[in-house]
Design a binder for these strands. Structure first.
Length: 533
RNA sequence: GCGCUCGUAGCUCAGCUGGAUAGAGCACUGGUUUGCGGUACCAGCGGUCACACGUUCGAAUCGUGUCGGGCGCACCA
């Protein structure tokens, strides 16, 4: 819709211009302050310019009016244009708000280490990534969702050790198990230890030489736990890449880096300082063990060799300092690091009874993503996280999280959709009457609601392109509000305009349902009242 | 100390390609259709958009600085 208007204006005025949606509907559906910027070069007042432009438009099918007001140029869309667009959407519901982008994108997100279940902090990046993915798919992009599994290195060894320690204390009932400074703890170790006992036999717990073997078995089990909790939240991945399988390419990749890596003090360094990093980084330690960065170098090389137009990584904000060295590596490998876009998901901090709740994976007092899903459901979790700008730290109280009333906007939106379904089920006119009804002469309020519902395509596009997914839930909230108000103001069933009013509601329902599905949420046809516990 | 990031209503947050009177939800106060689900609707209360300067016809939005919060500054991931 907006694209169409933009294109029309470009054709008429011969230039691109800012198009906005005025808050005040008396200013039309779209408006532009173009006359202000033209004022200087034309040496005329904006008011005059706007008036000249307005009169120069003449008759355009898409516009009911073009008015100049105080220097602004306000456009009112014609009923015909809106009605035709709405009818098209209802006839092609699965194409509504779709796009025809062709770009090939690799989106990497979550990528949590397979050393423990996902916690609430991971959930934010997971929801953000999956929402972007759904938006991109809908817009036609050829996008792949990928999970990078860090199944090599210290943390995996630590997992093996942690299981042994846990088993020695809780299964072998040893009295004095000595714990090192860092190891993992948490409820999940219990299942892992028991599983390992069944799989390997009890003797593996005291055999330090078999720590690695135990760890490699355990990380697959942990991945199963992770994937299950992702799928319970309808978060989908197309591909998983294991770090441990990338090192066979090591020599070849290092050769590509050329003299951008060098040896010193028995270690291998990368010249990242020359690319804006604080200093050069160690890639391989003097005992020959690769650092974390080494894995990311071979991984990003592999990504670029696979050949995408654009790469998006979603990282926790605490990793932002890591960006320069990865970009440096990509440049050194001979690729364009500008193709890599790193989006940061800010930390989530929890309040429990209004007190900050400190989480530490090592201490084992984490809030698991699966616990939250059990308590409030996937829909509410997704909605809450998708509603907040990802790069802003988010703070919420666990008690608020548990609320299942209207303070949770997901209920408000679902109720709007359910209301429409209820009305449709009470219709006194036929489906055919509704389908054939004209959307003209509906009056100002209905026109506003229709316009609002047809705005979804712009919102979807904007939300993805700007990577600001919260624009979608924000839009759905205001659309739901408009629907509720309309419902309150206008009696529809039995009205002489019933067919056209219900057709209008169908458009609103389509928009809500499509919008929710892009957030991984199913629209409901009925609201089930929560029982008071 | 250096870098990144954020600072909008009592609380949680939108708004930020500069544009017409700064928004929502929650909380608080008061209302609502002889009718479609009151899980709704309306109104009131509440703001020096952290502060200062600058750019501009116009700044919550852009720039610089100050103050304050978060994060990073590993051969940990």
């Amino acid at each position: 819709m907006k694209q169409r208007v933009s294109a029309l204006l470009r054709e008429k005025l011969g230039r691109d211009l800012v198009l906005e949606k005025p808050r005040d509907r008396s200013h039309g559906h779209f408006a532009t302050p173009i006359a202000f910027s033209l004022a200087k070069e034309l040496r005329k007042s904006p008011v005059m310019i706007a008036e000249e432009l307005a009169t120069s438009f003449g008759e355009v099918e898409e516009f009911a009016s073009v008015e100049a007001v105080k220097g602004y140029l306000n456009f009112r869309l014609s009923e015909k244009f809106l009605a035709e667009y709405a009818s098209w959407a209802l006839d092609n519901p699965s194409d509504f708000a779709k796009g025809d982008n062709k770009e090939k994108i690799l989106l990497e997100f979550v990528s949590a280490n397979p050393t423990g279940p996902l916690h609430i902090g991971h959930a934010r990046g997971a929801v953000y990534g999956d929402t972007l993915y759904r938006l991109a798919k809908h817009l036609g992009y050829d996008i792949t969702a990928e999970y990078y599994v860090n199944d090599a290195g210290n943390q995996i060894d630590l997992l093996g050790l942690s299981i042994q320690l846990y088993a020695r204390e809780n299964i072998l009932q040893e009295e004095s198990v000595e714990y090192p400074e860092s190891y993992y703890r948490g409820e999940y170790l219990d299942a892992l230890a028991k599983g390992a006992q069944e799989h390997f036999g009890i003797e593996i717990f005291n055999d330090t030489t078999r720590q690695k073997e135990l760890a490699m078995w355990a990380k697959d089990k942990v991945m199963e736990i992770i994937v299950e909790s992702l799928s319970n939240t309808k978060i989908h991945f197309d591909t998983f890449v294991n770090e441990s399988e990338l090192y066979s390419d090591w020599d070849r990749v290092m050769a590509k880096m050329g003299n951008n890596v060098y040896e010193a003090e028995g270690k291998l360094f990368i010249r990242s300082e020359s690319k804006g990093d604080d200093h050069d980084r160690v890639v391989v330690r003097d005992d020959n063990r690769p650092t974390y960065l080494a894995g990311d170098i071979v991984y990003h090389n592999q990504k670029f060799e696979r050949g995408y137009d654009h790469y998006i990584n979603i990282w926790g904000a605490d990793h932002h300092g890591y960006i320069p060295r990865v970009k440096a590596a990509i440049d050194f490998l001979g690729y364009d690091s500008n193709k890599l876009e790193v989006l940061l998901a800010q930390m989530v901090s929890l309040l429990k009874d209004a007190e900050p709740y400190k989480m530490s994976k090592r201490a084992g007092n984490v809030i698991l993503m699966s616990d939250i899903v059990d308590e409030i459901g996937s829909d509410a979790l997704r909605f809450i996280f998708a509603s907040k700008k990802s790069d802003t730290a988010l703070e919420f109280d666990l008690a608020e999280f548990k609320k299942q009333d209207s303070s949770n906007p997901i209920f408000y939106i679902q109720y709007a959709h359910a209301r429409i379904q209820t009305l449709l089920s009470k219709a006194t006119v036929s489906q055919e009457d509704i389908k054939e009804a004209s959307l003209k002469d509906l009056g100002e309020n209905a026109d506003t609601l229709l316009f609002h519902a047809l705005l979804l395509p712009e919102i979807v596009e904007d939300a993805f392109v700007s990577r600001q997914v919260q624009k979608l839930p924000e839009y759905l909230k205001t659309l739901a509000a408009a629907l509720h108000k309309f419902y309150y103001d206008v009696r529809m069933i039995g009205s002489e305009d019933e067919a056209k009013l219900l057709k209008l509601l169908l458009v609103v329902a389509l928009s809500i349902k499509t919008g929710l599905s892009l957030m991984g949420i199913d629209a409901q046809d009925r609201m089930v009242k929560e029982e008071d516990a």
